[in-house]
Nucleic acid binder design. Sequence first.
DNA 1: ACATAGACCGAACGGTCGTACTATTCTCCC
DNA 2: GGGAGAATAGTACGACCGTTCGGTCTATGT
Lengths: 209, 209
Amino acid sequence: MRKGEETREAILLHALELATKVGFAGLTIGRLADDLKLSKSGLFAHFGSKENLQLRVLELASRRFVDEVVRPALAAPRGVRRVRALFERWLAWETSPSLPGGCPFNAAATELDDQPGPARDYVVQSQRDWLETIANTARTAVQEGDFAPGLDCEQFAHDLLSIVLGYAHASRLMKDPKARARTERAFEALLHAAGAPATSASTPGARRR
Amino acid sequence: MRKGEETREAILLHALELATKVGFAGLTIGRLADDLKLSKSGLFAHFGSKENLQLRVLELASRRFVDEVVRPALAAPRGVRRVRALFERWLAWETSPSLPGGCPFNAAATELDDQPGPARDYVVQSQRDWLETIANTARTAVQEGDFAPGLDCEQFAHDLLSIVLGYAHASRLMKDPKARARTERAFEALLHAAGAPATSASTPGARRR
DNA sequence: ACATAGACCGAACGGTCGTACTATTCTCCC
DNA sequence: GGGAGAATAGTACGACCGTTCGGTCTATGT
């Protein structure tokens, strides 16, 4: 029972990498088996169906995201510093070398948005949880006095997500060398609009919203 | 030579719809032929290769985008009003009934970002052109005195793109009923940060429309 | 030492994929 | 209205898809 779980884990690890590169539709059992030098049937036996394999891959991605982004960021001190930690970890995740094709949730989001099923449901729920985590973090920043009292924290979460989507677009598709700088500027503007104390010089932005 | 072009156009029209729903990888010749009640070979003869078909579909999408978004918006008076027109037409495009699966460029962007080839190249160039159009429009708004003189117009274009990406994410994947309102709020904040004069009600934002 | 359970393989299934060919039908010009 | 050429159909191909099945190893527990 031990050897099996070991290879199973190896399969999922490689499957996640592959899925980021070729998408979840392109994640094929034959290709996986070839890469890992297993027989298709031997590999297949670990999951029972392709749908189940996709779900396990998504679960692995979630676990990794929590480990690499959420948990470390929550270790930062409450307030705007935690928001910054969240943002920085998130950007690092988007370009993590272990995810050569970018964030699997971004890929899944556009690929599955019109294909109902458990995979789509899982992605939607994950995003919902993540948005809530961001909003809650913003709320503690309000409590700490870092953000303006009237801040709409759900809107803040939405705006932050948009910024990161823009980052993925600019860096992955467009290969824009300025992607990182652009994204950081947008983030600083968002913080400023949320009422955060100015850290460095940034564009004269909107106070309150 | 007339009848052929007719059906060819019909094929492309349906192919574009299909591609938005199932992605460019899922856009299959057999499926297309079935839907249009043609034989695979009859359909295939129009394009010669699948790659060419994909390119023609992308070209059609570009033409439509120019017709439905760019050209009408450029008819608006120079300045911030033209920026608003661009934004509104763009949002309408994202949810256009003739694109049931959302913007084909969004789909292509995440699907092709790691698969080099002419299709990817075409998408990248289209996005570059579009970003430049936005930046130029912002520049005229600066000239008109609607935006602050020091505005970084490329950054403005990047930020606007992010906002629309966030809109697609929230409305298509999350089916968030507040997606539209969130997006308009983000847009108003962007305009405000760019130095646009407050519209009717200044701070609460999201008035308009 | 041996029984047993789990890991893995090889072959094969029915389908669908993109792409070749060769026919047949249609359209339009003279 | 017949003949040229374009448009479409038909059929076949090799490759790959997810899945099933029977069997052979190998490791573990007793």
